[in-house]
Design a protein around this nucleic acid. Sequence first.
DNA 1: AAATTATCTAGATATATGACTAAATAGCTA
DNA 2: TAGCTATTTAGTCATATATCTAGATAATTT
Lengths: 108, 108
Amino acid sequence: MEDMESGVFRALADPTRRQILQDLRAGELSAGEIASAFPVSGPSISRHLTVLKSAGLVQERREGNRIYYSLVGERLATSVGNFLSVVCPEQAVMRHKRKKVPAPGVDR
Amino acid sequence: MEDMESGVFRALADPTRRQILQDLRAGELSAGEIASAFPVSGPSISRHLTVLKSAGLVQERREGNRIYYSLVGERLATSVGNFLSVVCPEQAVMRHKRKKVPAPGVDR
DNA sequence: AAATTATCTAGATATATGACTAAATAGCTA
DNA sequence: TAGCTATTTAGTCATATATCTAGATAATTT
C-alpha cells in the first residue's frame, strides 16, 4: 500500500534509473541494450527496470527473445508535473496539445 | 559525492517530506509547527528537514528560540523541471514571468 | 532435443533510510 | 544562574535498497 507519487519519486531518486529514462527517449530499447550502457550487472539493471515498471514510468513489450522497454511519458509528466505545480504553482506545467495519436499501441 | 538531482529526488521520495514542502507553501513555519502536523517524533521531522535543506529545497532562519523553515521554490522547479523537460520534452515547464522581487531575504 | 542467447529470479551481503528515546545545545525569562 | 522551551545530535534498531553471483525460464537455432 503506497501512494502513487512516492513510487515515481523513489524511482527517480537513482541516477542509473534517471539515465535509463533519458536513454529511452530515443525510442524503445531491449533490456540488454540498456544494460550494456552501464557498468553494472544485467540483473541489477533488470531490477532497476522492475522499479521503473512498478512506478508506471516504462512499459515492456516482448518480441521473440527480447523484451523491449519504452517510456510512458505522460506518467512522468502527470505525477511529477502535478506535484510541481502544487508546490510551486508559479511554475506551471504546460502540456502542448498533440494530435491525438490513434492509439500508438495496445496498452499492455 | 553525489549529483545534484539525486538529492532532490531522494528528498521527494518520502511522503512526509513532500507534505512538508506543501505545508510550507503557505509561508514559513517553525520546526515545531511542522512537527505538530505529523504523527512522528520531533527528531524525525528534524532529520527530514535536514534532508530537505541538504537538497537545497528549503532554507532556515533562526529567530530567537525557534528556527523557521521556508521553501526555496526555484530550486525545485529548476532541477525537477529541467529533468522533466529532458525526459518528456513535449511537456515544457513554463516559468511565469514575475516582477523581480528586490531580494526577499538574504540568501544565506 | 541440445546448445545458444536474452532476461529474470533467488539468495547473500553491505549500505542507506526512517523511526524511536535520551541527551545535548541555543536562546529566553525569572 | 536556574529553569523552561525549541530544536538538534547521538545511539540503536528494523526495514529498504543496490549490488553481486549463480541458477532458472523463454525463445531461437541447429
